[in-house]
Simulated scan of single mutants.
Amino acid sequence: MKIFKAADYKRMPWKNGGGETAEIAVFPKDASLADFKWRISMATVASDGPFSSFADIDRTLTILSGEGMELEIAGERLALTHASKPHHFPADVATSAKLLGGTVIDLNVMTRRTRWTHRVERLRLPFTGRRNEATEFIFCVSGQVTVETETGRYELDTFDGAAIPLESTLLSVSGSGSALRIEIQTLTSPI
């Protein structure tokens, strides 16, 4: 199992220069913002403003900390908070955010829609399930969680992640914290 520690994430400016992002995982390895196939990152949002646009990309945004934000996506508004389900939307439509009460940290999962798809869900702990054929990650939102497969048992602290090995068939997540499950899958035929 590959473990991603929060202290080791690659930090870089947003595509539009409006803030900073911490890259957790990207495919292919070392891909740029222009040519990734999929990407998982965290952003610290300290002020209102527009989102960066990514052509042909689908995005899911999850609030990790802070009160949340009001998103305006192609003229439609919705409030996204720590209690909200992860929100999926196209990253190439006009999107802006208004903070609901101070700085927010969010998780972004993005996939190139012509070849990839993804799903992000909040887990109810303890969780036990079968591993899918997708590329899978467990991300610790808060506290500490334990991830266990046939290949081992690993402790994750807040904002750490784990890539679940392809050879694993069973997955168990427990602990005092909260976690997200991220699945990234290749489309069987291009769109």
Rank of each mutant, 00 (worst) to 15 (best):
M1E: 07
K5V: 12
A6N: 04
A7L: 14
Y9F: 15
Y9S: 05
R11D: 04
M12I: 08
P13E: 06
W14D: 10
G19S: 08
T21C: 10
T21S: 10
A22W: 11
F27E: 11
F27P: 02
K29R: 10
A31D: 02
S32E: 07
S32R: 10
A34V: 06
W38E: 02
R39I: 09
A46G: 05
S47F: 06
D48I: 01
S52L: 14
F54L: 11
F54A: 11
A55R: 13
A55P: 04
D56T: 08
D58V: 13
L61S: 04
L64S: 12
S65D: 14
G66D: 05
G75I: 02
G75E: 05
E76T: 13
L80M: 10
S84I: 11
P86E: 13
H87A: 11
H88T: 08
H88D: 10
D92M: 05
L99F: 11
L100D: 00
L107M: 15
V109N: 01
M110N: 07
R112I: 05
R113Q: 13
R115N: 14
R115M: 13
H118K: 04
E121L: 09
E121G: 07
R122H: 06
R124Q: 15
R124N: 15
G129Y: 07
T135C: 10
C140A: 12
C140Y: 03
V145Q: 02
T146N: 08
E148V: 10
T149N: 03
T149A: 00
G152W: 07
R153T: 14
Y154R: 04
D157T: 08
D157W: 05
T158S: 10
T158H: 03
F159V: 03
D160R: 02
D160G: 03
G161W: 01
I164T: 03
I164K: 01
P165R: 02
L166G: 10
E167Q: 14
S168W: 03
L170Y: 09
G175P: 06
A179W: 00
A179C: 08
I182V: 15
E183C: 13
I184E: 04
Q185R: 12
L187P: 10
S189W: 09
S189N: 12
P190M: 09
I191V: 12
I191C: 09
